[in-house]
Simulated assay, not measured.
Amino acid sequence: MSLDYKEIERVVEAESNAGEFAQVMQGLKRLGVQRYDYFVAEGVYHYYDEKSFVELKMNGVPKEVADRSDIAALKSAVKTAQSGAIDFERFCELAGKAGVPFWTSNLVTKEVTYFDNQHHVLHLEPIPGV
Rank of each mutant, 00 (worst) to 15 (best):
K75V: 10
M25F: 04
Y36A: 02
Q82C: 02
A98M: 09
E55P: 02
E55V: 13
S76M: 05
R68K: 10
E50S: 13
S105Q: 13
T104R: 15
D37K: 04
G43S: 05
V40F: 00
E15A: 14
D49Q: 06
G84K: 01
E50F: 01
A98N: 08
W103L: 14
K75H: 06
F102Y: 14
V33M: 06
L31I: 06
H46E: 13
D116K: 05
K57Y: 06
E42H: 01
V65Y: 01
G60N: 09
F91P: 02
A22W: 05
V78C: 02
Y47M: 09
L94P: 04
V40I: 14
I86E: 09
N106E: 14
S83C: 08
V24H: 07
A72V: 10
Q23A: 14
D37W: 04
Y114Q: 08
Y36G: 08
F115I: 13
Y114H: 12
A73N: 07
D49C: 04
V108R: 13
K110P: 06
L56E: 13
D67A: 10
V61A: 09
P101H: 10
T109S: 15
Q82K: 07
A22F: 03
K29Y: 04
E89I: 15
T109P: 02
A95D: 13
V54T: 08
Y36W: 10
G27W: 01
N59P: 05
F53T: 11
Q34E: 12
V112A: 15
R90N: 11
N17Q: 10
D49W: 00
D87N: 15
D87K: 11
T109Y: 02
A66M: 03
E50W: 01
Q23W: 06
G19C: 05
C92N: 15
I86W: 05
S105G: 15
L107D: 11
Q82P: 06
E111A: 13
V61T: 14
V33C: 03
Y114I: 10
G99T: 11
G96K: 11
R35V: 07
S76Y: 01
K57M: 11
A41H: 05
G84E: 08
V24M: 12
V100R: 01
A22D: 14
D70E: 03
Y48S: 08
F115Y: 15
A22M: 05
S105P: 14
V78M: 02
V108C: 11
E42R: 04
V24K: 06
R35G: 03
S16E: 14
F102E: 03
T109W: 02
H46I: 11
Q26H: 04
S69R: 03
A73H: 03
G32S: 07
K79H: 07
A85C: 06
E42I: 04
A41Q: 07
G43P: 00
R90V: 15
F53S: 13
N59L: 13
T80C: 03
H46S: 11
V61C: 06
K79Y: 03
R68Q: 12
Y38K: 04
L74T: 05
P101F: 09
S76D: 10
F88R: 09
G96L: 10
N106S: 15
K51R: 12
E64H: 09
D70Y: 00
V54Q: 08
K29M: 01
T109Q: 11
Q26T: 09
R30Y: 01
G43W: 01
G99P: 14
K63E: 13
A77H: 00
Q26A: 08
V40T: 12
Q82Y: 02
S16K: 15
S105Y: 04
S69F: 02
V108Y: 05
R68G: 08
E89D: 15
